[in-house]
């Protein structure tokens, strides 16, 4: 995983609620065996509209997106996170996120920052003209106008993000515990350990 600490830059003021993963990356872009190059299809349906915030020159290369409630609802496609990374987005600020999207974002080092709706509204306003800073270490979002909005982050996720830890590597360090658990279930719940059609 990429290590992340502070993200500073312009923020695209999208503001919409219920932005689903089909909107972030439509299914026809999913016919790939790679994680790369999906930025071309990111937010395709929104970007077809003239004057959409993604294509405003000031926001070119902006690292932050600001959205409404329930961002990333719908499909589990991690392509949504890959597409956002590929277009240069490394953080999203919204009042709430779908569970699967926030997991996918985390695995790719994208910060999913939850703030209250009125704080998001304030940032939507600031973002029109000024940059925003997200400081993960201190768990705070700031603007050039003295706004300081604290946010929560799971301690485990925070550590992984700051240190850029390989989660699979971390889990593999618990291999003994996994093996122990498997031995217990082979004893207590043997049908779960050995699906019949496989053992035949």
């Amino acid at each position: 995983m990429r290590a992340v600490s502070t993200i500073h830059g312009r923020a695209i003021p999208l503001g919409l609620k219920n932005v689903d993963t089909d909107v972030i990356i439509p299914a026809h872009w999913l016919k790939t065996v790679s994680r790369e190059g999906l930025g071309k299809g990111a937010f395709e349906t929104i970007r077809q509209a003239p004057g959409n915030p993604f294509d405003v020159e000031d926001f070119a290369g902006a690292p932050i997106l600001i959205a409404g409630d329930n961002f990333g609802c719908g499909s589990s496609r991690e392509h949504a996170a890959w597409a956002m990374l590929d277009m240069g987005l490394t953080a999203v600020i919204a009042p709430s996120f779908s569970d699967i999207f926030s997991g996918n974002a985390f695995k790719n080092g994208i910060l999913a920052v939850e703030l209250a709706q009125e704080q998001v509204d304030r940032l939507l306003e600031v973002a029109q003209t000024h940059p925003i800073t997200i400081d993960l270490e201190n768990q705070i979002v700031t603007t050039p106008f003295q706004d300081r909005f604290a946010f929560d982050v799971d301690p485990f996720r925070k550590r992984c993000l700051l240190e850029g830890l390989d989660e699979i590597g971390l889990t593999l360090a618990s291999t003994d515990a996994i093996t122990h658990h498997e031995a217990g279930r082979a004893q207590d719940l043997p049908w779960l350990d050995r699906p019949l059609a496989v053992s035949r």
Binding site: S75, E78, K107
Partner: peptide, 20 residues
């Protein structure tokens, strides 16, 4: 429950997931 591709990789490698 549904998972993303990084979690697919995690389950393939470890048969577990880190979850809250």
């Amino acid at each position: 429950f549904g998972i993303g591709t990084s979690e697919v990789e995690h389950v393939l490698a470890t048969q577990t997931l880190q979850l809250r």
